[in-house]
Design a protein around this nucleic acid. Structure first.
Lengths: 114, 114
DNA sequence: TCAATGCTGAAGCCTTCACTTAAGTGCCTA
DNA sequence: TAGGCACTTAAGTGAAGGCTTCAGCATTGA
């Protein structure tokens, strides 16, 4: 039954890991090379690279290799997509609460009249 | 190095699964019992319950048992928290781009003058 | 040209996830 | 009070995740 929404899946999954969120956080302050990104982490370089690969697959970041160094940047469009999904759910829920409120008010009216 | 931000971890992880997103989507249209929620899925009831437990742990939904039926509702406050995290990154990034734009404009000015 | 730098690939290991089935437990109704 | 309904618990399994180390392989700078 779960529809195939691979992008959203990957994005949420990518953001579920604290290391990857820290990477996104760092990149939100400007581009950086792989080894720059790896520096603050108590983790092997290949470990960090694997996280970066997942982030790139999900579309949250982009990378470009020039010479022997690979530079990473965020893609905020992807972040917006995630944000939109959440917002849509919130909106739906809030509209529902509004309707419920209106219904209860109407019931009160009736109550008063009877 | 990854700071302990268990809530955000759990929330993103919870939303990474299409089944769980479908559950949240359903609940965003109003409360439901466990078996109501399980109905559309080609999955055993305990399977669905496990997903619901994860959603509850993450804070995205709340549940309440009355008699023998358990009713689930969304907690939009939690959704907002996730949304805020994303928004903060986006803002940071966009501010950076603005500064970069301003810098480049300034450089252009210089270029014109010289 | 040779060593150092910056990554890349592959294999392996342990843990966590996403299910399953089977066997309860407690409430509600006739 | 028996029977069924709505979960709940437990145990198990296969696949996926999050690391590691070791061995490359292009660039770059002396």
């Amino acid at each position: 039954m779960p529809e195939p929404t691979p992008n959203l899946d990957l994005m949420f999954q990518a953001l579920a890991d604290p290391t990857r969120r820290a990477l996104v956080e760092r990149l939100s302050r400007g581009p950086a090379s792989v080894s720059e990104l790896a520096l603050p982490f108590a983790m092997s370089l290949p470990g960090v690279v694997q996280h970066l690969q997942l982030l790139e697959q999900s579309g949250l970041i982009k990378t470009q290799k020039i010479g022997r160094t690979r530079t990473c940047t965020i893609d905020t469009g992807a972040l917006s997509l995630v944000e939109k999904w959440i917002n849509d759910r919130r909106i739906g829920w809030e509209r529902r609460l509004d309707r419920l409120g209106a219904f209860l008010d109407a019931e009160d009216e009736k109550g008063v009249k009877t």
